[in-house]
Computed example of a mutant assay.
Amino acid sequence: MKDVRIEGYASLFWTRDLNDDVTAAGAFKESLQAGPIRMLHQHDEAEPVGVWDEAFEDARGLFVRGRIMSATPRGRLVAALVGAGALDGLSIGFRQVKARRDGALRVLSRVDLWEVSIVTFPMLPAARLRVV
């Protein structure tokens, strides 16, 4: 089995997620400059499933492009599930650095981004991947 190339938006700016979080443009800038972002499955840090070759902010949000690696059993499983359409969500793992409250919303203006996971149910329903 070959590595599976994927891409998508892991976060969309100014879009409320199911946890009442909203990410401001520029929130990921420092993390992206600091080093690589990990690719996990369901936020499980014990078994990375691939690599993000690119991660950047554009006008819409945080865009990622990478490869699910077939070298591990979990990578093969995730690749097969993505290929079948059973997994298509993206979700970010982060630590809040700077945020403010706006009513019920938490507006994240700076975060320490640890990882972007391939997930079944993303906290931000519009955060989806596609196979390229």
Score class of each variant (00 low, 15 high):
Pro73Val: 10
Ala10Cys: 05
Glu47Gln: 14
Val51Pro: 08
Asp112Phe: 02
Phe121Met: 03
Gly103Met: 04
Ala104Asn: 06
Val132Leu: 05
Gly61Arg: 07
Thr23Leu: 04
Val4Tyr: 03
Thr72Ser: 15
Arg5Asp: 00
Ala86Arg: 14
Lys29Ala: 12
Thr120Ile: 08
Leu87Gly: 05
Gly93Gln: 07
Ala27Phe: 07
Leu62Gly: 06
Trp52Gly: 07
Lys2Ala: 05
Arg95Val: 15
Phe56Gly: 09
Leu108Lys: 08
Thr72Arg: 13
Leu113His: 00
Val22Phe: 00
Ala59Ser: 15
Ala104Gln: 10
Ser31Ala: 05
Leu77Pro: 07
Arg60Phe: 14
Ala34Glu: 14
Gly85Thr: 10
Arg128Ala: 11
Gly26Glu: 02
Gly83Ala: 15
Asp20Glu: 06
Arg60Gln: 13
Val119Gly: 00
Ala104Asp: 11
Arg16Met: 04
Ile37Gln: 03
Asp44His: 11
Val4Glu: 01
Val132Thr: 01
Val97Lys: 04
Ala79Ser: 12
Ala127Met: 02
Ala86Tyr: 15
Met123Pro: 01
Glu47His: 15
Leu40Gln: 08
Asp21Phe: 00
Leu90Trp: 06
Gly8Trp: 01
Asp20Ser: 04
Glu54Arg: 12
Asp88Tyr: 14
Gln33Met: 07
Ile37Thr: 08
Glu57Pro: 14
Asp88Met: 13
Val116Asn: 05
Asp21Gly: 04
Asp58Trp: 01
Ala25Gln: 06
Ala126Tyr: 01
Asp112Thr: 00
Asp21Met: 03
Phe56Asn: 11
Ser109Leu: 08
Thr72Asp: 15
Val107Leu: 09
Arg65Cys: 15
Pro125Arg: 06
Leu108Asp: 09
Glu115Leu: 12
Gly26Thr: 04
Arg74His: 15
Ser117Asp: 08
Gly66Arg: 12
Thr23Asn: 06
Gly83Phe: 12
Asp53Lys: 12
Asp44Ile: 08
Arg101Pro: 02
Gly103Gln: 06
Ile92Glu: 04
Asp53His: 10
Ser117Cys: 10
Asn19Trp: 01
Pro122Gly: 00
Glu47Thr: 14
Ala27Asp: 08
Arg67Asn: 15
Ala27His: 07
Asp53Cys: 10
Ala10Asp: 04
Ala80Met: 15
Leu90His: 04
Leu108Thr: 07
Leu62Ala: 06
Phe121Leu: 05
Ile92Gly: 08
Val49Tyr: 09
Gly66His: 14
Gly26Trp: 02
Glu45Gln: 12
Gly75Leu: 05
Ala24Trp: 02
His41Arg: 07
Thr23Glu: 04
Lys98Gly: 01
Phe63Gly: 08
Phe28Lys: 06
Met69Val: 12
Ser91Gln: 10
Ser31Tyr: 01
Arg130Asn: 02
Glu7Thr: 07
Glu30Asp: 13
Ile118Lys: 00
Arg16Ala: 03
Arg5Ala: 03
Asn19Ile: 00
Asp3Pro: 08
Gly75Asp: 14
Val4Leu: 09
Ser70Tyr: 11
Ala55Pro: 10
Ala25Ile: 02
Arg110Lys: 04
Trp52Gln: 11
Glu115Cys: 13
Met1Ser: 03
Gly75Trp: 07
Glu7Phe: 07
Asp102Ser: 12
Gly35Trp: 14
Ala104Arg: 07
Phe63Arg: 11
Leu124Gln: 03
Tyr9Val: 05
Arg95Lys: 13
Val97Glu: 09
Glu45Thr: 11
Leu129Trp: 03
Arg60Asp: 14
Met39Asn: 09
Leu32Gln: 05
Thr23Ile: 10
